[in-house]
């Protein structure tokens, strides 16, 4: 994690004045984007319940939803960091699979599940930091270069796997599978992990110096640099965080299917990106919340689950996606514009 070594010593005499209270109206204004996302999410759910009450009032759909959405939703949470710094990453879907190559290789060599997990996460971290290096040190636009690394990481994985999958059915994996894909208090562990990662990332974003630097780097990198923030390091750490979470998602997904598909992650690129923007994180950097991305992921996931469960044709999914994304972004723009005046 990026650190600056400026000791945070400030005024010795404690301020007696308390921070002025803010009115409820101001509070709502300040959190208008999050409020808007919550409202849209609730509205959408209400529509689903009204349209197909027997589907949306039974628990089975929520179960299915809670096991599939986190597989890409966790990455949406970490992608928030990257987008806040005003960058983008397209390669995380390939990192999911490449991390698992690290897992299976190290497991074959050592027979140790713990080491295999570690290898998986380290591969993810390395991929993320490599992206960060290309973007922050060499200054290559992230949208372009991560398109390159998306193919590159996928290519390495395909070559190493020789294009064929790996079965993960051994008894050694039982404990891991229970931890990742079991249930806790009736809730699928996939969702539990997504919540845990969300809480951790929220804490990092809002309560650490690294988190504070993510915002200022995305807002105005020159200002951040002039104030002593190590801009390149912050960006590399953001990409690195996403790499680790992507590798972990790959592990969860592979353990769920007891099989490492060489195509793991393909097709789930756009869902996390949609979730991040639905959650109110700005493509211009400097603004974003982990909670918003969490809600965004729930919305995207529920459309997916909802359309199919309601017995509609799958192609309605895209129609709904499109509508929800367009409506949300129009609302967000209107809200932000009002906040500025």
């Amino acid at each position: 994690m990026a650190k600056t070594d400026i000791p945070p010593s400030v005024d010795e005499h404690p301020a007696v004045d308390a921070v002025p209270r803010i009115s409820a109206r101001l509070f709502l204004r300040r959190h208008a984007l999050t409020t808007g996302t919550v409202v849209i999410a609730i509205l959408m759910w209400t529509i689903f319940v009204t349209a197909a009450p027997d589907v949306f009032l039974s628990s089975s759909i929520y179960n299915a939803f809670a096991t599939t959405t986190p597989l890409w939703g966790m990455m949406a949470l970490a992608l928030t960091f990257v987008v806040i710094t005003r960058e983008m990453d397209l390669s995380f879907v390939s990192v999911m699979a490449l991390g698992m190559v690290g897992f299976t290789r190290v497991f074959d060599w050592t027979g140790n599940v713990f080491l295999a997990i570690l290898a998986c996460l380290i591969v993810g971290l390395a991929c993320g930091c490599f992206n960060g290096f290309l973007v922050a040190i060499l200054g290559i636009p992230s949208l372009v270069i991560t398109l390159g690394t998306m193919f590159f990481f996928r290519g390495i994985e395909m070559v190493l796997l020789d294009g064929s999958g790996v079965a993960l059915t051994g008894d050694e994996f039982t404990g891991l599978r229970n931890a990742l894909n079991g249930q806790t208090a009736g809730i699928p562990n996939e969702m539990v992990w997504m919540v845990v990662i969300g809480v951790v990332l929220w804490l990092v974003l809002n309560r650490t110096r690294f988190g504070a630097h993510l915002f200022v780097v995305g807002d105005n990198a020159d200002s951040a640099r002039m104030m002593g923030v190590r801009v390149a390091r912050v960006k590399i750490a953001a990409f690195g965080t996403l790499g680790v979470v992507a590798a972990f998602s790959g592990l969860v997904a592979s353990m769920q299917s007891s099989y490492l598909w060489p195509t793991l992650g393909e097709g789930s690129l756009l869902l996390p990106i949609a979730a991040v923007f639905l959650g109110g994180t700005s493509v211009f950097g400097g603004i974003g919340t982990v909670f918003g991305s969490f809600l965004g992921a729930l919305m995207v996931g529920s459309i997916q689950a909802g359309v199919i469960s309601a017995g509609m044709d799958g192609f309605y999914t895209q129609l709904f996606f499109g509508m929800v994304i367009i409506i949300s972004l129009v609302l967000q723009t209107l809200i932000s514009r009002r906040m500025r005046h």
């Binding site: 010593s9 650490t208 110096r209 630097h213 915002f215 807002d219 200002s223 951040a224 104030m227």
Partner: peptide, 25 residues
Amino acid sequence: ALADLQSVWRNMFMGREPVNRFGLL
């Protein structure tokens, strides 16, 4: 050298944020 979209307090302490003993802001 301000970050326009951030609050006054975040600007005031940019690059020099005080942390508590747990390393949290």
